[in-house]
Design a protein around this nucleic acid. Sequence first.
DNA 1: ATGAAAGCGCTAACAG
DNA 2: CTGTTAGCGCTTTCAT
Lengths: 332, 332
Amino acid sequence: MKKKSIKDIAHELDLSKTTVSFVLNKKGDEKNISKKTQKKILDYVKKVNYQPNQIAKSLKQGQTNTIGYLVPDISNPFFAKIGRLLEDHFWEKGYHLLIGSTDENTDKEAQLLNMFVNRQVDALIVASCFIQSDSIKSLLAINFPLVFFDREDPDVTANYILVENKISMKNAVEKAIELNSKKLGLITLTPDVYSLKNRIEGYKMALENKKIAFDEQLIRIVDNNDIQKGTEKELKTLIESGVDAVVFTNNQIAVIAIWLMNTYYKDKVNNIRFVSFDNVDQFDYSLPKVISVAQPIDKIAKYSTEIIEDILNSKKSKNKRIELMPKLIERN
Amino acid sequence: MKKKSIKDIAHELDLSKTTVSFVLNKKGDEKNISKKTQKKILDYVKKVNYQPNQIAKSLKQGQTNTIGYLVPDISNPFFAKIGRLLEDHFWEKGYHLLIGSTDENTDKEAQLLNMFVNRQVDALIVASCFIQSDSIKSLLAINFPLVFFDREDPDVTANYILVENKISMKNAVEKAIELNSKKLGLITLTPDVYSLKNRIEGYKMALENKKIAFDEQLIRIVDNNDIQKGTEKELKTLIESGVDAVVFTNNQIAVIAIWLMNTYYKDKVNNIRFVSFDNVDQFDYSLPKVISVAQPIDKIAKYSTEIIEDILNSKKSKNKRIELMPKLIERN
DNA sequence: ATGAAAGCGCTAACAG
DNA sequence: CTGTTAGCGCTTTCAT
């Protein structure tokens, strides 16, 4: 029993493809197809469990009802949760998510971008690691429906959903200092994206405000290629240099560090304070205690969806830049 | 500057679509296209940055290079991680993942299943909440490339990647008893899937082996529709009835319960032991201490990929059932 | 060494 | 009220 097409159905019912197509698309009344014919078609379709071929429809209509969701790592809870929210928002509109993880790799990102565009996704939502890439430039040039989130390149005008990084990080770090931290290290992924740079700026700003001397040695950079090992090494360095607080620029390394602390430095978990950008549920009961900056993921998803829908409906992009305020979670 | 098609290119180069298509598909030599023509085409294509339309190709070839990944919740770390591994495995083959979350809702699952099939996904990997559904039955009937994981229906013959549930849970619970737990409650999502039933069986079996009287009242069921609230309620019931251990049939409710304990029953976190099917990283340092059953997610992803590729290459399904042994993580 | 033409399954303007 | 037909962009057989 091979798959039936509209043609088969039309043939078997002694009707034309057009009539069948109209009825299936609920244009039966509008197109003045007789009730009788409509019923005949609908009944038959149900009986043989006809399934329309979306690919053919997509080709014809130049629209796939698919959104590409491109992030560094879909299994990172931050991206996974946003993905889930996007899926929910798009569900009622009949859009689905095609996912891709770039591993913070510029080449892979470019490849995925191209593949997704070839697959004719209707829009892209991406946390890019290289907004200046040629692929992205040419997408922007043709006004491809595109929204960036989590990462920004101030030199590139586009749609962005971002959170405020600098002040938020400053506030979090100041909070730690107020709670008595005196020597604060920082661990970050390679800060070649703007948001990380700003978070580091915020850290520096807090030190300055609170009259704590800034020490370049206390800023530790973890290479994107082996995050686990890198975090382990840098955390060790900081602990041996006697810090009483460690600031992390994203959840991924913070989570790894919490694990490391509980595994190798159990005796210190009560004497060190953590500060992390991005919140994850387990911070609520983790040791070391974590002051975190929670990004409003529901808003990020909501605005992304809205902008995309706006573009898709109006066919023109306005290059909105939305900056959301994250929430400081203290846990003192 | 609108999108160029093969036709445009052929036209602009004074060649036929055929020739261009051959060259683009690296069949230039095989088809005896002159080097000169080949170079002309390749150069031009690069210059105008031509991007082939995968949808048209898919329609023609009846193959989309897309795999549908259907799970209860893509933001659950267990499913997110497997998703990531699948993505990696399929990456080199040029396959991408279309994702869908069913929320354990039978209707939504059926809808998603249909939509994905309409979209002509080449195969489906699904953690189904209702394997006996009509949609699934008809897919199996036409031998659609399909592998189930995490959930099984013994009455339905199909490809399954599973883990052993009963003995593994028994071992975990016995371990808790050996570590001195005497009154063990259990919290589970509605056990209408076979794997959950088996995990509950394992719990009962352990009690029996260890001569602990079974008390129906200590088995608490959380409704799928409001998991957070449900877990809160059932955990309260158990704690008030004086249990010294709580067994969870999956990670989702265990993670919620850990949060609840640390938020509302902080004084008890050292006096209660948790046992959970599914492992998550934070169990390594969570209180209450958790004995967990870790599913081999890398193997789950690997075997799923292999079976799918097998089917896709050979065009025949063998209905393999693979049962993997999970790993007990003790943390005493 | 290259081209014409059919066809994948669907939609929709136009015809009758 | 229903059918004919062209065409979305691509592959591929067959012809030249």
